[in-house]
Amino acid sequence: MRVVIAEDLALLRDGLIRLLQAHDCEVVAAVESGPELLAALLEHRPDVAVVDVRLPPTFTDEGLQAAIEARRQVPGLPILVLSQHVEQLYARELLSDDGGAVGYLLKDRVFDIGQFIDAVRRVAAGGTAMDPAVISQLLAKHDDGPLAALTPREREVLGEMAEGRSNSAIAGRLFITDKAVSKHINNIFTKLDLPPSTDDSRRVLAVLAYLNR
C-alpha cells in the first residue's frame, strides 16, 4: 500500500512512518506543509494519505484544505485526517463530496495500533473511519429525535456503523453474530426511514449523511 504522510512535527512524522512501514505500507512521501502535501498527493496519487489538520506555513487548517482540494481534483482520493481535536464541522466538510474513502481521527487513536492500521486500510479500500468522539456527539445531538426509537443495542450498532466498521467488524466488537448485526441494521434503517443498501460503505455514508443533517 502506497502512503503519503503529512505531519509537521518530526517526532510524530517519524513515528507514523515507522508504524506504517511495519505494517506493509510503503511511504512514498512524508511532507510537512500544506503546499507540499497537495503537490505530493497530485504527483503520487497514493493508495491513502495520512494528514495532520494543522500544517505550516499558516498553522491553520492547511492540511484539511489541501486534502479537500486534492479530492476535488482527484475524486475519491483516500484521505485519513488526524488531529489533536475533532470538529463536527470538519467531519461534515470531509464527507460533503459523498465520495467515501475518508477518515477523521484523533491522534490518540494511533495508540491502538491494530485499530489504527485497520482504519488506514478501510479508508484505502474506499470505506470511512470516523472518530468515536465525532460520532458520539452526533448521536447525542439527535437523541431527542428519531434516535429515541432505537433500542440501546441498535444505538450501539448505529454508533459502530457510523464510525465506519463493516458488519463483521461490528459483530466481533459487540460479541454478536453477523446475522444479528444485519437484523439490527435493517431495524435501524427502517426506523430512520433510510433506503436499504447491501453495500457496507454506501450504508455508512447514508447513516453519516442522516446524522449530519
Binding site: F59, H85, Q88
Partner: peptide, 27 residues
Amino acid sequence: LVRGIHPPVLVERGLDGAVRALAVTQH
C-alpha cells in the same frame, strides 16, 4: 483544557469558522 483556553478551531478557522463549528454541535 486547551479548548477552554483557546479553541483550536478558532486558530484554524477564525471567528467565522469557530462559530459555525460551534453551531453544528449544538442541540
